[in-house]
């Protein structure tokens, strides 16, 4: 994907500031800490297809540690998970999909579309539902925070050096950050 110079500049600027403040930079645009990956879970046959599907449903760099935790929770509540993942993957392959826009409209309404939405929800929210007691499997890695991390803080993670956020421009909503 090509990006214009402005975007690149904005992003490298925010990266420099983050580095200055001592925050860790995840590989490939994810800001903040990455979750540890479990070797045992990585060997689970359902995990690799789930990650493949996730990467097709969400057009961003994904943290494998987050994916493993989400897969575990989904499995607990959905006995059909592996079958449904394969079914949606088949649709993606049949459409030669590289990004979600390539195949999402082809996913039929019902359990397959529900699953697709739930997986997207999980990556953005870091939990599987809106309840106050939902299990959380990601916070800083949750994409809703990554989506705005070039402009505002991820709460509880240091953003800049002392008082270095003065006089920031009131940036427009777009362009999007690539993460």
């Amino acid at each position: 994907m090509s990006r214009n110079n402005n975007e690149r500049e904005l992003q490298s600027l925010s990266r420099r500031k983050l580095l200055k403040a001592g925050a860790a930079l995840g590989a490939g645009g994810l800001l903040g800490v990455q979750l540890p990956v479990s070797a045992a879970l990585a060997a689970e046959p359902g995990v690799a297809p789930f990650m493949e599907l996730s990467r097709l449903l969400v057009n961003h760099q994904l943290d494998e540690g987050v994916g493993q935790r989400m897969w575990q929770l989904l499995q607990q509540e959905n006995a059909q998970l592996d079958r449904q993942v394969s079914a949606v993957l088949e649709i993606a392959h049949a459409n030669n999909a590289k990004i979600v826009e390539d195949f999402f409209p082809a996913i039929p309404e019902g359990e397959l579309q529900d699953l697709a939405y739930q997986v997207i929800f999980g990556w953005y929210a870091g939990c599987l539902n809106t309840s106050k007691t939902a299990e959380s499997f990601a916070f800083a890695q949750a994409l809703t925070f990554q989506n705005t991390a070039d402009v505002i803080s991820i709460p509880s993670y240091g953003r800049t050096g002392p008082n270095e956020w003065a006089d920031r421009p009131n940036v427009p909503v777009l362009p999007l950050r690539d993460f």
């Binding site: 979600v100 999402f104 953005y124 809703t144």
Partner: peptide, 17 residues
């Protein structure tokens, strides 16, 4: 019900506004 770029844009819009 948005996905992909449309979702990112809407989410960013709603956060900023």
């Amino acid at each position: 019900g948005l996905v992909g770029k449309a979702l990112d844009e809407q989410l960013r819009h709603n956060t900023g506004t």
